[in-house]
């Protein structure tokens, strides 16, 4: 119950580190990565809810190794890996949410890749959890992961065309002869 006692009170949804503390922490982590990886490590991006470190798409795996194995950091868990399509910028962002059980600390990494030919280093060898998460991003957003052991579609059938979570995805009219729209009694077409 130690954890609960420390942060008692307050019905605010999330208990977070104070702003100053967080800033210092993430700046220090960025400096550490920058020392080892050089220009591949970008700036710390401010956000209204948390900061993230931007990394080049071909340095993710090395950065991930460092983050996991550095004794002061020990990010031993990949909590989430999501992709998001930004057609306006012509980019797809991959966001890694890391967590360290040892130090109870979170960190967000962000990788941008070109929309036309999205290709990012796989972190499967660092965190096995990434295997399925990357397959999901590949399936729904079409991002390929360099060095992934088994990059297949995971949720949609093998013969599906397109990547539905892209913003410009057009839903198919039919799949194996099954039409995907249904005329409603009111004459409104579904699926749009």
């Amino acid at each position: 119950m130690a954890g609960a006692a420390e942060c008692g009170g307050g019905s605010v949804a999330l208990v977070e580190l104070s702003r100053v503390e967080r800033d210092m922490e993430i700046a220090a982590i960025r400096r550490l990565l920058h020392d080892k990886l050089g220009a591949a490590v970008g700036v710390v991006e401010e956000g209204p809810h948390y900061e993230s470190i931007r990394i080049d798409d071909d340095a993710v795996e090395r950065a991930a190794m460092l983050l996991r194995d550095t004794p002061e950091l020990r990010f031993d868990c990949l909590s989430n890996l999501s992709g998001c399509d930004y057609p306006g910028r012509g980019a797809i962002d991959i966001v890694y949410d890391l967590y360290s059980y040892e130090f109870d600390r979170s960190l967000v990494l962000r990788v941008s890749t070109r929309r036309g030919d999205p290709l990012v280093d796989s972190v499967e060898r660092v965190w096995p959890a990434a295997n399925w998460l990357e397959r999901e991003v590949f399936d729904l957003l079409g991002v390929r992961f360099r060095g992934h052991s088994d990059l297949r579609r995971i949720l949609l059938p093998e013969d599906w065309v397109g990547h539905p979570l892209r913003k410009d995805y057009v839903e198919p009219e039919q799949y194996h002869g099954i039409s995907t729209v249904r005329e409603s009694m009111l004459g409104i077409r579904s699926g749009s």
């Binding site: 995907t180 729209v181 249904r182 579904s190």
Partner: peptide, 15 residues
């Protein structure tokens, strides 16, 4: 019956 809530989905057979 008809796809229900998931008529909006791309991967659901409506009925």
């Amino acid at each position: 019956n008809c796809g229900g809530l998931f008529q909006l989905a791309y991967s659901v057979c409506d009925g």
